[in-house]
């Protein structure tokens, strides 16, 4: 407790002298400050996203491809399931990890493989041996080509990073235009009782630590597949 008071005391002492406003090289005379949050117009400065939902789907697909994620859009859930089974066969999956949910239950049943479900606790070694982790998500973001998962809606913290292939099952209605919308939605959906982990996943795990050359699957999944209908 005493260090807390010491640090806060030093901060208050330091802040008695006010600092020049940013970007003005110490010139405070021309400073104009409004009461709204400086970042509240972020939408107008971030990369543009297009107005229609078709444009945003196309943007998501383009961004996901740039990130080397595999995004597939289907007309119906049945078509999605056919693609998922094809994935199972080409990659020769023998076991998957997943969690209970409206979309995942259907997918796991159709796969017909042994499933490590995380809902009531799980064995970490067993999950590590799984060929894929199949989860739902909170949102797809057109602006970045990424997905949002949380510890509550996507089977915990480890499921989306431990298996070598992360498969997201999503619905088209989950696509949002940009990052400010994604943050606003999370806040209205969860606040004040947030899931203990919220993760913005933008492409499969990667590193450039050796000669700045891109390698996928540094520690997290080597592949990210987003199946959407």
């Amino acid at each position: 407790m005493s260090e807390r008071n010491n640090i806060l005391g030093r901060i208050r002492e330091a802040l008695k002298v006010s600092a020049p406003l940013p970007g003005l090289h110490g010139d405070t005379a021309s400073a104009h400050r409004s009461t709204e949050s400086p970042a509240s117009h972020a939408r107008e400065w971030l990369p543009s996203v297009g107005a229609s939902s078709e444009e945003q789907v196309a943007l998501f697909a383009k961004n996901a491809a740039d990130l080397k994620a595999d995004f597939q859009l289907f007309a119906s859930r049945d078509e999605l399931i056919i693609a998922l089974i094809k994935l199972r066969d080409t990659e020769k999956w023998s076991r998957v990890a997943s969690h209970g949910g409206g979309l995942t239950n259907f997918a796991n049943k159709a796969l017909g493989l042994p499933v490590t479900l995380t809902d009531h606790g799980y064995n970490v070694q067993e999950m590590e041996q799984c060929d894929a982790g199949i989860t739902e998500c909170d949102a797809l973001i057109a602006q970045t080509g990424g997905v949002v998962v949380t510890s509550r809606s996507a089977g915990g913290r480890a499921l989306s990073v431990l298996p070598p292939h992360h498969v997201v099952i999503a619905q088209r209605g989950q696509l949002v235009s940009d990052l400010p919308t994604a943050f606003a939605n999370l806040q209205s959906k969860y606040a004040p009782d947030f899931p203990s982990m919220i993760s913005f996943i933008t492409g499969p795990s990667r590193t450039g630590d050796i000669e700045r050359i891109l390698v996928l699957g540094a520690h997290g999944p080597k592949k990210l597949t987003i199946l959407c209908f």
């Binding site: 949050s37 970042a39 509240s40 972020a42 400065w45 971030l46 990369p47 961004n63 740039d66 602006q143 970045t144 080509g145 990424g146 990073v161 940009d178 990052l179 400010p180 994604a182 943050f183 606003a184 999370l186 806040q187 947030f194 899931p195 203990s196 982990m197 919220i198 993760s199 913005f200 996943i201 933008t202 492409g203 499969p204 795990s205 990667r206 450039g208 997290g220």
Partner: peptide, 30 residues
Amino acid sequence: PRFSDLALFLPMLATAGAGQPMTCYNTMYS
């Protein structure tokens, strides 16, 4: 100050730091 500030800072950090639109994992723990 705010949760929504991340909508600006996360893409800016990725862009300035490594020329990425977003870093691969941006995770908030509460």
